[in-house]
Design a protein around this nucleic acid. Sequence first.
DNA 1: ATATACGTTAGAGCGTACTCTATATCAAGG
DNA 2: CCTTGATATAGAGTACGCTCTAACGTATAT
Lengths: 155, 155
Amino acid sequence: MSYSIGQVAEKTGLSAYTLRYYEKEGLLPYVQKNASGLRIYNEDDISWLSMIECLKATGMPIKEIRQYIEWYKEGDATLSKRLELFRKRRLTVEQELSKLKKILGKVEFKIRLYEKAVAAGSLEAANNSEEINQLREELFGDPNYFPEVEEKKAV
Amino acid sequence: MSYSIGQVAEKTGLSAYTLRYYEKEGLLPYVQKNASGLRIYNEDDISWLSMIECLKATGMPIKEIRQYIEWYKEGDATLSKRLELFRKRRLTVEQELSKLKKILGKVEFKIRLYEKAVAAGSLEAANNSEEINQLREELFGDPNYFPEVEEKKAV
DNA sequence: ATATACGTTAGAGCGTACTCTATATCAAGG
DNA sequence: CCTTGATATAGAGTACGCTCTAACGTATAT
């Protein structure tokens, strides 16, 4: 099965512009062209694209993705470099996950605070409530810790 | 306690350039200046900065952070808008978390694959091994699912 | 055969978030 | 007073990842 650039764009959610850009940047070294110069993508190209999307989702910049692809093209001589690369990606993703979990806690605290504020019609009232201070202590281990202390500010 | 821009840069890890840029973009509307025009940051400014860092970590662009700050300045009339904003942030973070967990699974699969490939000296051998195919099935529910099928490609 | 839709290239442009430069002023120690 | 180092401003420049334009070629239905 083969696909035009438009069909691949449809399938992947990437624009045709982006597909050509990736190719220009060396991320899709295997895309064939027919006699008239039109790109013909096959299943393997689609698979490469899903690999690229995976690496991008780990926060990897395009230059480094190209590096991976170049190593891939060099064959088994670069296996350990590629292993190393994936281990670094794992670390990055793990760090991002733990960062985001903390952030989620803070956002959830804010939601509770603002739910109470909306109910009370006053941020100040919610912010000084027993419930919120207790929550603050539970979440941040300190009733005096205000990750969003700006609410206390006299404006 | 008050701080110079350099001290705040030190404390927060942001550059002085970035601090001025944030101010210009309306993210730090309360920073005072002394008679000579030098910025004097106080604890509340630091707190705003940590709020900004939190919102940035949720993927929020600077323009929207400014919107939040403008709503904050308008007082209790905008409480429900701000609640809504935090609920959207929660959704964004939850989606990002679930995406990253899937990505981590794929990266871990790759690590196992490459560990085996390094041991065998051949990606092809690892890729066709019983163990890897079993893992593929465990992880992706399909022994024929190849999220990185490019390894099968004849290069 | 021609209209229309889709594809090609090279290269310019854009949005975001900084980051730096040039030039000038400020603050503190010797 | 003078030097040194931090800070001020306006505005230019950078890096990244696209995104689009212009001018032209291809494919296909009527």
